[in-house]
Write a protein that binds this DNA or RNA. Structure first.
Length: 210
DNA sequence: CCATTAAGATACT
DNA sequence: AGTATCTTAATGG
């Protein structure tokens, strides 16, 4: 674990900070599809993603979901940072996109380190910043782009985070993430297949031009 | 085999 | 773009 941590965070965290992280952090391993954080749950620890990818979703009253963004290696969830300000419930749901290794840091440590380490402060602020930007990007996509563009972006992003040109999801799952219906996704995918952008198979999609 | 489920088709709003 | 419904095709017991 020391090795992994060094590789990812060496450049931004000071040595004593990394030592402290190793001391108090707990590694959890989850497999693809596992729910890491559920809406309404209290956040007691802050997750640092060491390996794999995590998708972050929002849900409405009817239980319909919408994909907000993906977390990748070295990133963290800004929702959990609100814990600094007190005990807040999670507004989002986080699901492991791939098998993932996550380092959990107790919330009180997080506050302590904010005062103590410059590297940590920067990390938190940068993280906030990039999460916000990703969120803005998703909002733009929803507001200004039509569904086929959204779908293309979704597929490309998915390939990127899973590091695989085959997307192992059903049309229905994609429809849930983009908050639309299965038939519509099927129609659009068919169109994209005709345009030789991808190849359709049962339960997975092969992206051709990556 | 059959049950389940993904995905294609068609027609309607 | 989305819903409802039916049909067809894979997949896993």
């Amino acid at each position: 674990m020391t090795q992994e941590l060094l590789e990812i965070f060496e450049v931004q965290f000071e040595k004593p900070l990394i030592e402290e992280i190793i001391e108090v952090g707990k590694i959890i391993e989850v497999s693809a599809g596992d729910t890491i954080m559920e809406i309404g749950n209290y956040v007691r620890a802050m997750p640092l993603l060491l390996e794999g990818a995590v998708k972050v979703l929002r849900e409405d009253e009817e239980g319909d979901e919408l994909l907000l963004y993906y977390l990748e290696q070295g990133e963290t969830c800004s929702m959990s940072m609100a814990c600094c300000m007190g005990a807040t419930k999670s507004e989002i749901r986080a699901i492991a996109e791939t098998d993932a290794k996550i380092l959990m840091v107790p919330v009180h440590k997080m506050q302590e380190w904010m005062a103590k380490y410059k590297g940590w402060r920067n990390y938190i602020f940068e993280s906030y910043h990039s999460r916000l930007n990703e969120l803005l990007h998703t909002v733009d996509t929803i507001a200004f782009k039509n569904l086929d563009q959204r779908l293309m972006e979704y597929l490309k992003k998915k390939c990127q985070v899973t590091n695989d040109s085959n997307i192992r999801s059903t049309h229905q799952e994609i429809a849930y993430d983009l908050h639309t219906s299965r038939v519509v996704i099927s129609r659009l995918l068919k169109k994209l297949e005709k345009m030789k952008i991808l190849k359709l198979h049962r339960s997975h999609i092969h992206l051709l031009d990556v």
